[in-house]
């Protein structure tokens, strides 16, 4: 008996969350079932639209983070990230 696949299965496939066996079964079903294929196209199309929404932080923010990281490297810090002046002075 042929297994039927649901919208949820197609979402999992689109996000590569199906195991190898399920992936193969769904891909086979897609070649035989036009309605399922159409639904899959719809899912991937909507997801690709979401992909287009992308933004990035300003260089100023990135530099702030990197400067903080540099400061940690320069100063000797204890486990609570307090500056250990004794070690620096020595």
């Amino acid at each position: 008996m042929k297994k039927t696949f649901t919208f949820n299965d197609l979402i999992l496939l689109a996000y590569k969350e199906t195991d190898a066996n399920s992936t193969e079964q769904i891909l086979n079903a897609l070649t035989e079932n036009e309605e399922l294929l159409e639904t899959y196209f719809y899912v991937t199309e909507m997801l690709s639209k979401l992909d287009e929404i992308q933004e990035e932080p300003s260089d100023f923010t990135i530099n702030n983070i990197l400067n903080y990281s540099k400061a940690l490297n320069i100063f000797n810090l204890d486990k609570d990230l307090n500056v250990n002046f004794e070690v620096i002075n020595n």
């Binding site: 949820n8 979402i11 899912v43």
Partner: peptide, 8 residues
């Protein structure tokens, strides 16, 4: 998964 399905 159901929420994702309904969202789409």
């Amino acid at each position: 998964l159901g929420r994702m399905r309904y969202a789409l």
